[in-house]
Design a binder for these strands. Structure first.
Length: 280
DNA sequence: ATGATCTCCTGAGCGC
DNA sequence: TGCGCTCAGGAGATCA
């Protein structure tokens, strides 16, 4: 389940191999992805164009090509972008890009939640309109988090999973950040004070950086662009650890369901916030 | 306007 | 061994 760190690791793995090279052709499989441009559209706008920049926006990879053409790739739940030709008979390969110098890039996605969309020059990149601020952006501050949460009652966990506010966090890193900050996942966001937002933001950034350094988190499916697993799963404090001992206090990690997703937390390290009159 | 729920998809894991 | 069930979750759609 690629979240911000996994997408960033993939971006860094792909960039040295793809930048400056031209796309020659693309082959699209029969099964439909959640959202994908047609073979004709991809061929028309990619063929012969050099990749100028490879960026990340939230969980999207943004391929900037010559002449203002842009390709967006979202890996969904189980998407992979693998360098090198796919093995014969490899399952769930839905697109194969061929570039100069014999380089191939395969998009593999078991659950087909992914997106591969190409945009003509000056065509608006509509999927990015919904993407919130980058966690490492200077525009994300404790004060801003407080502002967008004032008067809101939704639980902190749901807030962190809302990509329209803060981009790139998924279930794993949301759980880990709340644990690290010692804040209970059901806490209504409107009750968090400046200090708590500051601590949470600090922990979000620390954990995302650490996960990038470790090559991401592999729980079931994730592989980087070279087919390697990440290592951050070894550092997980709560995610996927229901019934196991808290690595900080020894109490049992609990699970609850929020917004249809599992939330893992330590009931001792993450206390339910006592309501106080003044938040700031 | 806000927040919760549903939908898409397939394979792994489990009980019987 | 095989069948049916549940679960995993990002993001857009839909509902109260």
């Amino acid at each position: 389940m690629p979240e911000l760190p996994e997408v960033e690791v993939i971006r860094r793995g792909l960039a040295p191999r793809l930048l400056g090279r031209r796309f020659l052709s693309v082959k699209v499989g029969k099964k439909r992805l959640r959202q994908a441009s047609s073979q004709e559209h991809l061929t028309r706008w990619l063929s012969g164009r050099r990749l100028e920049r490879l960026q990340r926006r939230g969980k999207y990879l943004v391929f900037r090509l010559e002449g203002g053409v842009t390709m967006l790739i979202h890996l969904g739940m189980t998407g992979r972008l693998l360098l090198g030709p796919p093995f014969r008979g490899e399952k769930h390969v839905h697109l194969v890009f061929t570039l100069e110098d014999g380089i191939t890039l395969a998009f593999q996605d078991v659950r087909r939640f992914g997106q591969v969309l190409v945009f003509a020059p000056d065509e608006p990149l509509t999927p990015l309109n919904q993407v919130g601020r980058e966690p490492f952006s200077r525009r994300v501050t404790p004060a801003w988090l407080g502002e967008v949460s004032v008067g809101r009652t939704r639980p902190l966990k749901n807030f962190l999973l809302d990509g329209r506010v803060l981009a790139g966090l998924g279930n794993i890193y949301a759980c880990e950040a709340m644990f690290a900050a010692g804040i209970h996942p059901v806490t209504p966001v409107g009750t968090l004070n400046f200090k708590e937002w500051g601590l949470l933001l600090q922990e979000i950034r620390r954990i995302l950086k650490q996960a990038i350094r470790q090559g991401g988190t592999t729980v079931n499916d994730y592989l980087d662009s070279h087919g390697k697993t990440g290592l951050f799963q070894l550092d997980l404090m709560v995610y996927g650890r229901e019934g196991e001992s808290c690595r900080r206090c020894g109490n049992l990690i609990q699970r609850l369901v929020q917004a249809g997703r599992s939330t893992f937390f330590c009931p001792h390290c993450q206390r339910v916030k006592q309501l106080s009159g003044c938040n700031f």
